[in-house]
Design a protein around this nucleic acid. Structure first.
Lengths: 194, 194, 194, 194
DNA sequence: CATGAATGAGCTTTCATTCAT
DNA sequence: AATGAATGAAAGCTCATTCAT
């Protein structure tokens, strides 16, 4: 039993890694099950043991990437000042985006082409995760936010961050530490009251 | 000669419209030359008279969309205050995004999947156009900007705007006038010195 | 225009002939689009210009076979005695079955596996055609039939005929003229009053 | 040993039942080893312990169905009148067809697609079993039959019976007792001298 | 210039069968 | 004996592109 499970894990991880690599290299539209299987070192039919179809496969990988990048971020310490909490979460996003640029690219590609995903997931493409949501709620309750419109907060905080990291990864340029500082400062000015 | 040109124009416009419609309806990945030609009411072979291949076709349509949405924006009046100029250009972007949501969607889809475009265009997917570039230059010279890092300015001004309009178009919800006001206010706080 | 239509016809006929041959040789379950196209000398994709999918293709060929074997039979002369009319139609069936054994085999194979056919056709697998139907009606009105149950008449007249011709074709044995005479005599005894 | 045999029997019966069900539900062409094993609650590999390959498996199930429907019929009492013996056997067929419509359907499907069966069985698809064969022999010796051509007798007696029961099972309509009486009467008229 | 027909290459998916345990 | 995982081969189907007219 254990051995079987181990094999599962290996194949799954191989498929996952191959998918991230291929999308990074050639774009989502070039990701086919054949290429994926070949790259992962498994047979095409094997992929269909683990996943129902291509959409299901992409959906799972998408969820994994999303979890790694977003859902894994812990809620910040409630004792800290709200703006510090915001900064902490922003830095956590940035850290994740920086560590896993392929996952970031993969997630972004699927968010821009939701028709690849199973219908159940097509509406679930926001960058907002539980940690940032908590911060926003706290900021709202403390009346420190300029707006209660969550879309606008995402637009001025998470979207810029994601866009910057993705553009830079595409061009293989790093985001300098000072740039991140500045982006967070700008986002903070944008969404918090003076 | 005139007749021919007119025919050209008609077919081109038909192809363009069909492409925008189909991408809106089914996503970029579902856009095939056969479907495109059928929808446009021309033969597949005709498309290959006007364009070398699919990438070339998409490239041209992409340029057209980009022009309509971005390059058409006039440079603002140099006499106005810089922040007013910024607001003016932001409102022009917003106006265009609002008027041509399909073009916006088309442009964004291609920006997220540059592998569809001819190589020559693959680096040219920024939202920055001449009008906004002029404003940034002026603001920089007047030392009114918090940063001289253009990427950060795009990240905090144009990206949020585009994202908001695109998300709303996808969900068929309009961007309220007050929302636009607020987004511009937030972007202004983000990039201009206090 | 004419030339195009001619090409159509040629390809269609080639596909049709190839389908009959392949089913005859290897059975319906071995009939694949690839083999069919190869045998017909066209590309796979070409088959999909003429037909929507495999079921549609089989449906059309099935209809063609059915027409050739059944629907083409003329209604017999109303002046003749009913039993003579019956014999005439039975002989017409027999003649067709004899002339087009591949079509007979093809039709029978599909009737036994209606899941291959488009849903619209799945209920339409009877041997009864307009000619025999007319005879049955006339016999009924003249009160010469032992039963008004059409199923029973088919069971005792057309099914035996078809079965005999098909079994013989499979074993490459001809139906002797005397056998046909006898079968018709037996069927006549079965369905007509003494 | 006994345990094993019992397990064998259980698995075999499960496979058999699953095959009948699946063919009934989706047609023979949709019957795959994977689906069969899943439905029977055994592993695919297990099926290959009991049977050499798919044809062998189908062959065995076919034989079982055939036995249940045909070979199990006892020879009728030689003291009875021949036509009564004939009727008795016909009623036995009818009874079996009625009791086991799935087996009937399964047998008919394979008879129409012998390419699924092992070559050794491909010629063995007649409805004629020992009981009816005995009756025919006796009728022949007693010179009561219109013909000594066995094919014609099958064509006018067993084929109609099978066809009627199968069509009715497909349409989920029962064969009324009066219908059966009439069919036997017609078949009797067809094959016996007046 | 314009076209519908045609196609090689490649797609997603499934199959009968075997392997490792 | 029994199994779930694995797979090469092949299925149905579609695509970007070209050809004949």
């Amino acid at each position: 039993m254990d051995k079987m499970r181990k094999r599962d894990e290996k194949k799954l991880i191989a498929l996952e890694q191959a998918a991230l690599d291929l999308v990074q290299e050639n774009g989502l539209s070039q990701l086919t099950i054949n290429k994926l299987a070949k790259r992962a070192g498994v047979s095409v039919a094997t992929a269909y043991i683990y996943f129902e179809n291509k959409a299901d496969l992409l959906g799972h990988l998408y969820q994994t990437a999303r979890e790694q990048l977003i859902d894994s971020i812990p809620e910040p310490n409630e004792q800290d000042a709200i703006s510090l909490q915001f900064e902490t979460v922003m830095r956590a996003y940035a850290h994740n985006f920086n560590e896993a640029p392929k996952a970031l690219n993969f997630m972004a590609a699927l968010a821009a082409n939701p028709e690849y995903l199973p219908e159940a997931l097509q509406g679930n493409t926001t960058l907002l995760g539980p940690a940032m949501l908590a911060v926003i709620k706290r900021g709202y309750l403390a009346q420190m936010l300029l707006t209660d419109n969550v879309d606008l907060i995402i637009a001025q905080a998470l979207q810029p961050l994601q866009w910057l990291y993705q553009v830079r990864a595409q061009n293989q340029v790093v985001v300098a530490s000072a740039e991140l500082d500045q982006l967070i400062a700008m986002a903070t000015r944008a969404i918090f009251k003076a």
